[in-house]
Simulated scan of single mutants.
Amino acid sequence: MNWNAGHYLRYGNERTRAAVDLAARIRLDLPEKVVDLGCGPGNSTQVLRQRWMNSEIIGIDNSPEMIAAARKAFPDENWQLADVACWTPASAFDLVYSNAMLQWMPDHANLIPVLFGMVAPGGALAFQIPSGTYAVVRTLIHEISHKPEWTDQLEAARTMLTMESPSFYYDVLAAEASEIDIWETEYCHVMDSPNAIVDWIASTGLSPFLAALASDDQRAEFVSELKRRVYGSYETRVDGKILFDFRRTFVIAYR
């Protein structure tokens, strides 16, 4: 999947908020080695740098566009182009951190133990992903994807994201972790219009659906239908703004 760093950062403050909340709750004073898995354009990595000024921090992403944007914005950091699915570190990390990336990887029952295996004694695995309790806009995307003319070609897009329950992640980590901190937060992002909600998700969760459609006309039809439904599903507040409710799942497991 191709990533557009500029589009992603159009809502950079909102996207970075969860990264800040996750980092703030990690109870590690001076982690020597830190890795940011799925670092994107570097916004989450900078959250880690601000928290731990003297740590060795590596940002890893499989998108050349995202790594290029990170290198341009933060040239002094260590950026690596790599696919987390097949990446093997040379040594363990005091903190393995991931902000809104693991949902793009399958089979969390096997993935999470592998990532926890990268954590050094006394360290932590910390990640956040969108909650499996879908935002309204994502439910609308799935509903539209079942239109008869394109339901078959969008089957893979419907199953691309993996978002398990908090209890699932607890059970996967309980046997190895010394302590587990799990919570969910629902953010109410203030958006200028219903169209802004569609624009937000166009660079992330909507992207696989649009990429799977056969033509620009189909993509335009999909987006037009989504905008129409979003207008009917979100209320306009007294000042003309829209509250975009978005729930996220946070997990911190200590070794």
Rank of each mutant, 00 (worst) to 15 (best):
A5V: 12
A5C: 04
H7C: 02
L9V: 04
N13K: 15
E14D: 03
T16C: 12
R17D: 12
A18K: 06
L22F: 13
A23C: 13
R25W: 01
R25Y: 01
R27M: 09
L28T: 03
L30A: 14
V34R: 03
V34P: 01
D36V: 05
L37C: 05
L37W: 03
G38D: 07
C39M: 02
P41N: 01
G42E: 08
T45E: 06
T45P: 05
T45Y: 02
Q46A: 00
Q46T: 02
R49P: 08
I58S: 14
G59N: 05
D61G: 04
P64S: 03
A70Q: 06
A73M: 11
F74G: 15
D76E: 15
E77W: 03
N78M: 02
N78E: 11
N78L: 02
W79M: 11
Q80C: 03
A82N: 14
D83G: 12
V84P: 04
V84I: 15
A85R: 15
A85Q: 14
T88M: 14
P89H: 10
A90H: 05
S91R: 13
A92T: 13
V96C: 07
S98T: 06
A100Y: 06
Q103A: 02
W104F: 11
D107M: 07
H108R: 05
A109C: 06
F116N: 10
A120D: 01
P121H: 04
G123K: 03
G123I: 08
L125C: 04
I129G: 06
P130C: 07
P130Y: 04
A135F: 11
V137M: 04
R138T: 05
L140V: 10
I141Y: 03
H142N: 14
H142V: 00
E143P: 00
E143Q: 14
I144W: 02
S145R: 03
H146W: 07
K147E: 14
E149F: 03
E149Q: 14
T151K: 12
T151V: 08
L154R: 08
A157H: 06
M160L: 15
E164L: 13
S165I: 10
F168Q: 05
V172E: 00
L173I: 07
S178E: 15
E179V: 07
I180R: 05
W183E: 05
W183K: 04
W183L: 04
E184P: 03
E186G: 00
M191E: 09
D192R: 11
A196N: 01
D199G: 00
D199F: 01
D199N: 06
A202L: 02
S203Q: 11
T204I: 11
L206H: 02
P208D: 04
F209A: 00
F209L: 00
R219S: 08
L226E: 06
K227L: 11
V230K: 09
G232N: 15
S233V: 07
R237C: 11
K241L: 07
L243Q: 05
L243I: 05
R247C: 04
A253V: 07
Y254E: 01
R255Q: 14
R255G: 00
